[in-house]
């Protein structure tokens, strides 16, 4: 009898047991009714290892989606309600002088978790917003010259209401760029809304949501995302799109190299979510708007966020239509 080699997640890139990605999708979808596309994109962000910005008017379920995601993927979950008087220390943590040992002790802030829900992120000052920059990009925070690593996986889900102007601070471009996707919920359709009212019966649907993933399995799934094949021609296609935004005459700021990276990761994650081991041009094209739109700045940007979003969307559509798909 020959000895079977030991199978561990490290040595087996494609274990026979599929990670329950579909379950994740199902359970989040059970909470947010009739918004399959948004849920799909949110799960893709999760898989791609990016951060998510949900932007819409109040009452359409932004926070519910964020909470559902956090709850479904398991791991530690913290929520910070961003207000105008919030300070960086409130997020990152503080060094406290311990009189007994006569040295400073670090008391970690809420950022030390797997999922951080930054609710109404635009209500806080740029100073506090910036506290998240390093955490989001490097998955570590530095305080007084000492760097503390954050847990893995680490995910920021931020929500904001674009229509409110009073007492808000728009996110700077560098911060926007760090979000892999920006999603908006939109109103539910009639049946979904009816079902929501009738089916809820005053009960919070989040109560029934059980974690379907663990942080470890999410890490494994993310590793699998990296193995999804992205054909050279598709990579060129992707770069053509990105380059198209840079060359577009109506855009003041095109997509960054990070955007290209994000788009490729998101496309890979989409392929994995759809049980494919290779990326399709449709994946890239479909994700172009959620991944790229929030990073683009038009020359004559409209003041109204909704109008501005439509403006960017039209430009992006223009870019997509002029970029030829590889055959």
């Amino acid at each position: 009898m020959t000895r079977q080699p030991e199978l561990t997640p490290e040595t087996v890139p494609f274990p026979s047991g599929e990670p329950p990605l579909q379950d994740l999708f199902q359970s989040v979808g059970a909470v947010i009714r009739g918004k399959d596309e948004v849920v799909h994109d949110a799960v893709v962000t999760l898989l791609a290892g990016g951060h998510l910005l949900i932007e819409d008017i109040p009452g359409v379920g932004k926070t519910t989606l964020a909470r559902a995601l956090a709850q479904a993927m398991g791991g530690t979950f913290r929520r910070v309600q961003f207000t105008s008087d919030l300070l960086p220390a409130d997020i990152v943590g503080v060094n406290v002088f311990e009189p007994s040992s006569r040295e400073f002790l670090f008391r970690p802030g809420p950022v030390f978790c797997h999922v951080l829900l930054a609710d109404e992120i635009n209500r806080t000052t740029p100073r506090t917003q910036s506290a998240l920059l390093q955490a989001m990009e490097e998955q570590q925070v530095t305080l007084d010259g000492i760097t503390h690593a954050l847990p893995d996986p680490f995910l920021v889900i931020a929500t904001q209401n674009p229509l409110e102007h009073h007492g808000t601070y728009p996110l700077p471009e560098s911060q926007m760029d760090r979000f892999l996707m920006r999603l908006s919920m939109g109103y539910p359709d009639r049946t979904a809304e009816k079902e929501m009212i009738v089916g809820r019966n005053g009960k919070d649907p989040l109560v029934d949501l059980k974690p379907v993933l663990s942080p470890a399995s999410l890490t494994a799934a993310r590793r699998r995302v990296e193995q999804v094949r992205l054909d050279d021609s598709l990579l060129n296609y992707l770069l053509e799109i990105v380059d198209g935004t840079r060359r577009h005459p109506k855009l003041a700021l095109g997509a960054s190299p990070r955007a290209a990276l994000a788009l490729s990761r998101a496309a890979r994650a989409t392929a994995l979510l759809e049980s494919r081991e290779f990326v399709l041009p449709d994946d890239i094209k479909g994700l172009a708007e959620p991944v790229l739109a929030h990073r683009l700045v038009p020359h004559d940007a409209a003041a109204d966020p909704t109008a501005r979003r439509d403006q960017v969307r039209a430009i992006l559509q223009d870019v997509l239509e002029t970029t030829s798909v590889p055959l």
Binding site: D282, E321, V325
Partner: peptide, 30 residues
């Protein structure tokens, strides 16, 4: 091989006869 397999070229020709042509920027899936 990075080459479009001939059967898809045949399909495209066939679809063209049905007034279905790949528009600029359109993916095969679309």
């Amino acid at each position: 091989t990075g080459v479009m397999p001939p059967f898809y070229a045949r399909l495209l020709r066939w679809l063209k006869r049905c007034d279905l042509e790949l528009r600029p920027g359109e993916t095969p899936g679309e």
